[in-house]
Amino acid sequence: MEEEKAEEQQQFSHRQRLKAAVHYTVGCLCMEVALEKQVQFSKQTIAAISEVTFRQCENFAKDLEMFARHAKRSTITTEDVKLLARRSNSLLKYITEKNEEIAQLNLERKAKKRRKPEDENRDSREPDAEVGGSDS
């Protein structure tokens, strides 16, 4: 019973920290827009945007979990995120481009890792070859 209460309290605390982080970020974004567009946001407006954003993120998380579960997976994939963003062409395009960039970077890293052992093998053979070549 006490363990359940402690876990509930921990979850509540975690949720409050997340909400505070979202509120802070929304506040920063509103300040940027305010400076750029020469408008002002009331504290109530920032709080409302923060709350809507937090709730929408919760809905996104639930949807992503259901997409993966429907596909009989326990891992959420990029394809799940694309499915979530399907109604926003600009967001879907952005996610697709970022996914392609990340995939390209991963391929480049893998290629470098493969070359390293080859380079090390070549380096270890080259001194032997030089020593053998200088003896003659």
Rank of each mutant, 00 (worst) to 15 (best):
H14L: 08
F67R: 01
P117Y: 13
S90Q: 13
E120W: 12
G133C: 02
Y24M: 03
A68R: 05
L64M: 07
V39R: 06
Q10A: 10
S42A: 07
R17L: 06
A34C: 11
V81A: 11
D63R: 03
A47S: 10
I46P: 00
R86P: 08
A71Q: 13
A61P: 07
R115K: 11
R114M: 15
I76A: 12
Y94D: 03
S134T: 09
D135C: 01
G133P: 00
T78M: 14
L105F: 01
E3D: 14
R15V: 11
V81P: 04
E101D: 10
L92I: 02
N121Q: 06
E58K: 14
Q104L: 15
R17Q: 14
Q9C: 12
S13C: 07
Q11N: 10
Q11H: 15
Y24T: 11
Q9H: 12
Q16Y: 11
E51W: 07
R73G: 06
F41M: 15
E58R: 09
S13E: 13
N99E: 13
H70G: 00
T53F: 13
F41D: 13
I95H: 04
Q16W: 10
M31P: 00
F60K: 04
K116P: 02
S134H: 08
I76P: 05
E7N: 05
A48C: 14
I95Q: 03
Q56Y: 09
K112C: 04
N99A: 15
A48F: 15
E97G: 00
T45G: 00
V39W: 06
T96W: 00
Q104W: 14
K5G: 11
A61H: 10
A85S: 13
C57I: 07
V81H: 06
K5D: 13
